[in-house]
Simulated assay, not measured.
Amino acid sequence: MRIFTLFAASALLFSHLSGNPQCYVEGYNDLIASADENALILKDGTKFPYHTDSSKSSWEDKINNADLATQLIQSYDAGGSETPPPYLFDPGRLRYQPFFQSLYGKNKKEIEKNLVTITWPTLGGSVKLPVNKVGGVDKKLYAIGQEISKLPKRDRIWAEGATTYAYRVIKDTDRLSMHSFGIAIDLAPAKTQYWKDEAASETAHIGYKNTMPLSIVRIFEKHGFIWGGRWYHYDTMHFEYRPELLASSCVATAK
């Protein structure tokens, strides 16, 4: 497994200036009624503005005040290579929290009502993991586990130590982790890499490191999960369900 260091990061902040609102409809077709440049409407009638008035002039503004438009401003490169991402290129890391709260549960109590348990295969047997059932996330993660179980042992070992639901904020922020919604999973936490082990500042220039095999990554991506190893702020153990970024009208062309 190769480990990369980014010596001279690109100054490219966004490779795409805006995303297509239809990515949301395509990604969550059983949950979203419509979306355009003005608003997104869930099938239960909940309506969100596509753009909010909060400042988004700096990187810190974007990550702390993201709206639905901001979520799609960087196109995810599904199936791409292990090339280190450009400076501040984090497709999927800019999140509009109210959107996910409406889909999966507005608070801890509501989220936990939507949790079910799946069986996740391990080299020694299996473990039970709590996962959100809304939109069939549980079924997709179960299918991912079954596919990973067919990989060679040298790859499967990177799917050990799996953890899913934990109601908590992201380290050093007040933003909810995607684990709080039961739609994220971490694998091999003792052997993978996290950007904050190198630097604390969001705008620091950091080197890229990864040991997670792409054989596992591509299985996740096929089922609507993005990988934190495709972020400049790499989190190579982390996968989260984000089908809007993997919709055919939204995903970047694989290199």
Score class of each variant (00 low, 15 high):
residue 251 V to W: 02
residue 232 Y to S: 01
residue 182 G to T: 03
residue 153 K to H: 06
residue 177 S to K: 02
residue 151 L to N: 08
residue 104 Y to L: 10
residue 189 P to R: 07
residue 16 H to G: 11
residue 165 Y to C: 05
residue 153 K to P: 00
residue 54 S to C: 08
residue 46 T to E: 07
residue 251 V to L: 05
residue 71 Q to S: 08
residue 85 P to H: 05
residue 163 T to G: 01
residue 245 L to F: 07
residue 152 P to C: 02
residue 227 W to N: 01
residue 222 K to W: 09
residue 210 N to H: 09
residue 15 S to N: 11
residue 236 T to Q: 11
residue 176 L to N: 10
residue 59 W to R: 10
residue 200 A to D: 11
residue 55 S to K: 14
residue 235 D to G: 03
residue 148 I to T: 06
residue 35 A to R: 04
residue 144 I to V: 15
residue 201 S to N: 13
residue 123 L to C: 08
residue 117 T to L: 11
residue 172 D to Q: 12
residue 54 S to M: 11
residue 71 Q to R: 13
residue 160 E to I: 06
residue 180 S to M: 09
residue 75 S to G: 05
residue 202 E to R: 12
residue 23 C to I: 00
residue 139 K to I: 05
residue 15 S to Y: 07
residue 186 D to H: 02
residue 40 L to I: 04
residue 35 A to K: 04
residue 56 K to D: 08
residue 221 E to K: 09
residue 158 W to K: 02
residue 41 I to G: 04
residue 254 A to Q: 01
residue 99 F to K: 02
residue 54 S to R: 09
residue 78 A to N: 06
residue 1 M to F: 12
residue 252 A to Y: 02
residue 45 G to K: 00
residue 238 H to A: 06
residue 92 G to M: 05
residue 174 D to E: 14
residue 210 N to K: 13
residue 200 A to M: 01
residue 99 F to A: 09
residue 245 L to D: 03
residue 113 K to V: 05
residue 99 F to M: 09
residue 236 T to E: 11
residue 158 W to L: 07
residue 30 D to T: 14
residue 157 I to L: 13
residue 109 K to R: 13
residue 31 L to P: 02
residue 6 L to E: 09
residue 214 L to Q: 14
residue 117 T to A: 07
residue 70 T to H: 01
residue 155 D to E: 14
residue 62 K to I: 15
residue 228 G to E: 00
residue 124 G to K: 13
residue 146 Q to N: 14
residue 215 S to I: 05
residue 225 F to I: 08
residue 4 F to L: 12
